[in-house]
Design a protein around this nucleic acid. Structure first.
Length: 289
RNA sequence: GCCAUGGUAGCUCAACAUCGCAGAGCGACCCGUUGAAAACGGGGAGGUCGCAGGUUCGAAUCCUGUCCGUGGCA
């Protein structure tokens, strides 16, 4: 018997997570929590392939549209919001479906990550002024053990390591009994085709206007516009790039994303890879008892 | 047909004058990932330098021929 059922559905972009989630949540009394670092933004609907209003009407969705494109939301904040949403769902006797392709977001929830404290803006601003060598030196002085686990080429990690050196962090090493993780098993060729088609549809639905609206409203260098399709179509919206080039860059960005997502997910032994909706259905039925 | 110009990694191009280990960016492939994660970072692979001769200790580089494509003139 499962008390607090959590079913995660993971996989690369354009692998069909949304459809499967709607199908399963509809059948098994579920609600969906989107674990996606981009659909959390308001107004970024078309280019992020956010579930449509109609889809949201079929099954309740959580954690969509939580921040303005001009703002940022961290993984730590996401995890906290997901906890609140899950508690809410369980209290109403329903099943929580955590759906998304942001590997770290998913893991932070299913493995109950305890993050070190949030960044102190004053300290971060100070660290930003240091060179990588200085950041390494600073760690060596204060927390030599922290230096062993950090990628010394990666400036962001070096800054973060300086911010959090000595602070506790933890995670579950074993998946909870109340959690089932389904992975979308798909071949890359299929995904690539779907990506191309999806971009065409996005253009038909007014993606360029969406990019222009975000650019003019929140600034052309806002965080939101670092998202793949938006980055590719920024210059198209500004009129200095062709739609064809934009679409090609969008597709290339998506293909790269797919690879990174697969790299993240394939090392996770807890994922039950499914090829068909039927398989997924069977596993969920079995899991819920 | 003549003149000019180009042919080097999957793609775009460096290196050529004054011969001396053939390079970069992008892509493809692989990996890392604890409060920016669609972010950020790391790695190896990939070459008959169009082809055939010649000069030279040594040729992507100089010489000759030849094939291909681009522009111009006819």
């Amino acid at each position: 018997m499962v008390n607090h059922p959590l079913i995660a559905i993971v996989g690369p972009t354009a692998s069909g997570k949304t459809d499967l989630a709607l199908d399963l949540a509809g059948k098994f009394n579920g609600e969906i929590i989107c674990a996606d670092s981009r659909t959390i933004y308001k107004g970024m609907d078309i280019g992020t392939a956010k579930p449509t209003k109609a889809e949201q009407a079929r099954v309740p969705h959580h954690l969509l549209d939580v921040v303005e494109p001009g703002e940022k939301l961290s993984v730590g904040e996401f995890r906290r919001l997901a906890e609140v949403a899950m508690t809410d769902i369980w209290q109403r006797g329903k099943v929580a479906f955590l759906v998304g392709g942001s590997g770290l977001y998913i893991d932070s929830v299913i493995y109950e990550y305890e993050f070190p404290a949030a960044a102190d803006p004053v300290l971060r601003a100070e660290l930003e002024t240091l060179t990588n060598a200085e950041l390494i030196e600073r760690l060596k002085q204060d927390y030599p053990e922290a230096l062993e686990n950090v990628d010394q080429h990666n400036r962001r990690r070096l800054i973060r390591a300086n911010e959090t050196a000595g602070l506790p962090r933890s995670k579950r090493t074993v998946l909870g009994d109340d959690t089932l993780v389904l992975g979308m098993a798909v071949n890359k060729e299929m995904i690539h085709q779907r990506i191309e088609k999806r971009i065409e549809k996005m253009l038909e639905r007014g993606f360029i206007d969406e990019v222009r609206r975000i650019g003019t409203t929140y600034g052309w260098d806002s965080e939101a516009l670092t998202a793949i399709g938006y980055r590719a179509f920024k210059d198209v919206a500004l009129g200095t790039k062709t739609v064809e080039d934009g679409a090609a860059d969008f597709a290339r960005g998506d293909r790269l994303l797919v690879k990174k997502q697969l790299t993240w997910f394939k090392r996770n032994p807890d994922i039950r890879w499914v090829e068909t909706a039927y398989e997924a259905d069977r596993l969920v039925r079995e899991f819920l008892g």
